[in-house]
């Protein structure tokens, strides 16, 4: 005679099978998610002070382009990459260093001296010499690096 609250052999096996199957699924699933998604929270670049060059190269009131080679670690590959930074000073004492990466979708902007503007070739983003958006789709000014000056040399904090 079967009591009401007794579970049948069949139901027990059903629950056991699904539970063990579920555990095995989790055993695969959780590591798989960590494996695939880890670049989302793992940063490969350490922030370091990068020497751009002498402050004397910067023209007053005009964004001046500095190109420096930096070592970048991507996956198992260490590469030398060129970093382009525009440095602006109004008084020869305070410097701002701007990234040449457009804040819209990541193309590289260029300073066109005749028009006194930065132009992005991809979607016609335009920035003024301080990096503020003048027109086009960019949502915010050009990114700035932290700057320091030591013995007449310009350094930025980046990676």
């Amino acid at each position: 005679m079967k009591e009401k609250d007794e579970i049948s052999r069949r139901d027990f096996m059903k629950v056991a099978t699904w539970s063990i199957g579920g555990l095995i699924g989790l055993g695969w699933g959780i590591p798989a998610i960590a494996y695939v998604a880890s670049p989302a929270w793992k940063s490969e670049q350490a922030q370091v002070w990068i020497r751009l060059g002498a402050t004397s190269k910067v023209e007053l009131g005009v964004p001046t382009l500095f190109k420096v080679k930096v070592k970048r670690q991507t996956g198992w590959i260490v590469n030398e990459e060129e970093l382009s930074v525009y440095v602006l000073t109004e008084d020869g004492r305070n410097y701002i260093a701007m990234s040449n990466v457009c804040t819209h979708l990541g193309c590289r902007v260029r300073w066109i001296a005749e028009q006194d503007r930065f132009f992005c070739p991809c979607h016609n983003g335009v920035f003024d010499q301080q990096g503020n958006v003048v027109s086009g789709p960019p949502p915010r000014p050009l990114n700035q690096y932290q700057v320091k000056v030591e013995d007449g040399q310009l350094f930025i904090l980046g990676g």
């Binding site: 590591p31 798989a32 960590a34 494996y35 880890s38 793992k42 198992w76």
Partner: peptide, 9 residues
Amino acid sequence: TQVPAGWLI
């Protein structure tokens, strides 16, 4: 050595 759970996979 670097990828999380990579050793397991």
